[in-house]
């Protein structure tokens, strides 16, 4: 799948020659499937707005009789997360934000740079390099955990030494920094793939024109390529954001206790056994955990269909 194709194709408004019945069937089916997908979310939202007795005693599909936001504030600020001293998921939420934002930005930028070099400054052996990066996309998470742990351990020791020498570890050994490193490396194969495919179709004459105009390697990248990459940047950001935010395995392996990301905290919250299971609080926490990815789709999704390359060359 070419990412460029994905983002520039606009579906036609009305298929030719569809009769009224066909359209009713199509929309009916679409509506049905949308409902199937939305019902769980609806149940979650409703459950999170009910007091606990209404949840345990009542019907899952019933509307809340006593509307309450208490489960949300419980989840955010007071709920017990595993054995940790810290209460509520708010701290973990920000752990995730602190990890996701740099990881997404760095991996996207490096992917763009890789795509640029691999397509427009191709050097001997660039196919092999790209092949190996592509291979990295298919390495399962589990198989890199141990080597990754070894490397992060080494980085941690370097951090300790640096701290002894200079008083600052440069972030090495910090759990959030470790997760950023892991996600950037793991995501690089994908982001490079996205940008390489997009830039392969990018007119080389623009690069040549910029070279004649005297633009340097990075000036061409910054002034010509990046401003014309909005669709693929959005695709990459959505992809990376969703993957990194939703990651559980790396998070639970490399960040323990108070440094854990949101997904790990959610798991700990749900698994904390203090008598009754507070479904309403769990649901609220789960919605909070899912909110950022939903938000990214809502905000960025509309850029998906924009064909920004129109007018660069005669189509």
């Amino acid at each position: 799948m070419s990412a460029a194709d994905l983002v520039t194709s606009t579906p036609s408004r009305r298929g030719p020659g569809h009769s009224r019945t066909t359209r009713i069937v199509i929309y009916g089916l679409l509506f049905l499937f949308a409902l199937v997908y939305l019902v769980p979310l609806l149940v979650m939202v409703m459950t999170s707005l009910k007091p606990l007795d209404e949840v345990t005693g009542g019907n899952m599909f019933a509307l809340p009789r006593h509307l309450t936001f208490a489960p949300w504030s419980m989840a955010w600020g007071e709920a017990r997360i595993g054995v940790s001293e810290t209460r509520g998921i708010s701290g973990y939420f920000f752990n995730s934000v602190k990890m996701v934002v740099p990881a997404v930005l760095i991996s996207t930028l490096l992917g763009a740079l890789n795509g640029y070099v691999l397509t427009k400054w191709s050097f001997p052996g660039h196919k092999l390099v790209f092949g190996m990066m592509l291979f990295a996309c298919f390495i399962p998470f589990q198989s890199v955990i141990i080597p990754m742990a070894v490397i992060l351990g080494m980085l941690g020791r370097i951090g300790v030494n640096l701290a002894d020498l200079t008083g600052w570890s440069f972030g090495l050994g910090n759990a959030t920094v470790n997760l950023v490193i892991v996600h950037v490396i793991y995501g690089l194969g994908f982001t490079t793939l996205f940008f390489r495919n997009y830039y392969a179709a990018f007119p080389s004459e623009l690069i040549k024109a910029a070279m004649i105009d005297g633009a340097s390697f990075f000036q061409i990248f910054r002034r010509i390529l990046l401003p014309n990459s909005t669709p693929i940047i959005i695709v990459t950001v959505i992809y990376q954001f969703t993957n990194i935010w939703n990651d559980f395995l790396f998070g639970s392996t490399f960040a323990a206790g108070d440094t854990a990301p949101m997904t790990v905290a959610l798991n700990n919250l749900v698994n904390t056994s203090t008598g009754v299971v507070e479904y309403n609080v769990n649901m609220a926490a789960a919605i909070i955990a899912a909110a950022p990815t939903l938000l990214v789709y809502v905000i960025a999704g509309r850029y998906f269909v924009r064909g920004l390359m129109a007018g660069a060359v005669k189509g």
């Binding site: 623009l206 040549k208 024109a209 910029a210 002034r223 014309n228 390359m309 660069a312 005669k314």
Partner: peptide, 18 residues
């Protein structure tokens, strides 16, 4: 290329779209 005292007009025009 930028130091050769030349200018080029390309078949596709190669105008910077942004």
């Amino acid at each position: 290329p930028s130091k050769r005292d030349i200018a080029m007009v390309f078949q596709s025009y190669a105008l910077y779209p942004n």
